[in-house]
Nucleic acid binder design. Structure first.
Lengths: 209, 209
DNA sequence: CGATCAACTGCACCTATGGTACAGTTTCGC
DNA sequence: GCGAAACTGTACCATAGGTGCAGTTGATCG
């Protein structure tokens, strides 16, 4: 009952969201006009307001879609890594390598994170959006924290480690790496940050030798 | 209350920039109206356009002011650290500790980076802004790279290291840490990321024992 | 004392955009 | 062929960004 989808209009909404997302990532939410979105999709203003109650409703739709996609990427990433390896540390290192490769092979020249975009315009949005955004970030923390806990259980760290910070570092490097990559127009920055993170994890937990 | 000796208008521009910056960090550039800026400062619209040719000129003024401030912070940071230590590695580790403390004691509850804000709205700005922003990022890379080169010269790394990525990691963690801190409303995230970075540097270069 | 210039104020005006309202039309499933 | 989803078309309003320009104030200087 969640997906409707048989009707032809079912993908109009998706196309509106896709057009809106790329515009928002390029100019911000406030500067993205409804007019340009409908022009890109080839629909009228009335059609837009059939799909979205108002602009705030569009923002919510954008974020939900983005978080769904985000979650799917993480699922795929760890799923593939787990198929290849049983050991938690090696599995995590494999996943990070896959992640770095994924980030290096992004089709888009100038990707961006909608959560970051919304965060820097947060006064435009209501509490619901803020909470959705926070939940998305906490999902990253939780996912990486689980892995690190499993690793730490088998490979005790030589030094005391702030595991929560190390879990957050993944999302931190992605957000920061996207920004540096955009500003410097260098798509290699993000994947190289991921690989450095991988080095940190290995140096922290891997037994010497 | 009144400032002495200089022309009274000389700080009107600064007050406009300060009001604009906090609004831009909260809502983005496009959503920041000139009306609200002049209302905050207590000036008329004509007065605003006396100081800034148009809104793009305001953007340039904001970024230049921000980058100046940014540079001063880095100068202060490394300057203080260098006074305390001669060894490049220990000096860098001290600087990172100072940096983490500085980030932990920020007066503002919800800080943000103007460069990041502009980056996520880059289609609003002209090439000059883009170039200024890139120069600012390259300054961070260069500053940290110099330190790492000096460290690597005295303490050869056990593993091959991507020194450029490690230099960029500082700015990356700051940008990402600010985002996570804002989204999760947790001011401890950024300083803890800096300390993890410090651990990475130490683990990479410090001789065992 | 009067000229000059920076630092404004006041006003008029045009346009774009978000958003509302609502009546009509097409397309599809049943 | 009935009803509902998925639209189109038109009209309209309030707000705000932005431009242009003429006028005013007040400190400073010769």
């Amino acid at each position: 009952m969640l997906e409707v989808s048989t009707r032809k209009g079912s993908d109009t909404r998706e196309r509106l969201l896709a057009a809106a997302e790329s515009a928002v990532l390029a100019k911000g939410f406030a500067a993205t006009s409804i007019e340009e979105i409908i022009a890109a999709v080839g629909i009228t203003k009335s059609g837009f307001f059939y799909h979205f109650k108002d602009k705030a409703d569009l923002a919510k739709g954008l974020l939900l879609r983005y978080l769904d996609h985000d979650k799917a990427v993480l699922d795929d990433l760890f799923g593939r890594a787990d198929e290849l390896n049983d050991d938690p540390l090696h599995g995590f290192l494999v996943a990070l390598k896959l992640f770095a490769e994924m980030m290096a092979n992004l089709p888009e020249a100038h990707p961006g994170c909608l959560a970051a975009s919304f965060c820097y315009q947060d006064q435009l949005f209501n509490r619901e959006i803020h909470e959705l955004n926070a939940e998305g970030m906490l999902e990253w923390r939780q996912r990486f924290r689980e892995r690190l806990d499993a690793i730490a259980a088998r490979y005790p760290a030589r030094q005391p480690v702030d595991l929560e910070a190390m879990a957050d570092m993944a999302a931190t490097l992605v957000e920061g790496g996207l920004i540096l990559g955009r500003v410097l127009k260098d798509a290699t920055i993000l994947p190289r940050q991921i690989l450095l993170y991988r080095d940190l994890v290995r140096a922290t937990f891997a037994p010497p030798g």
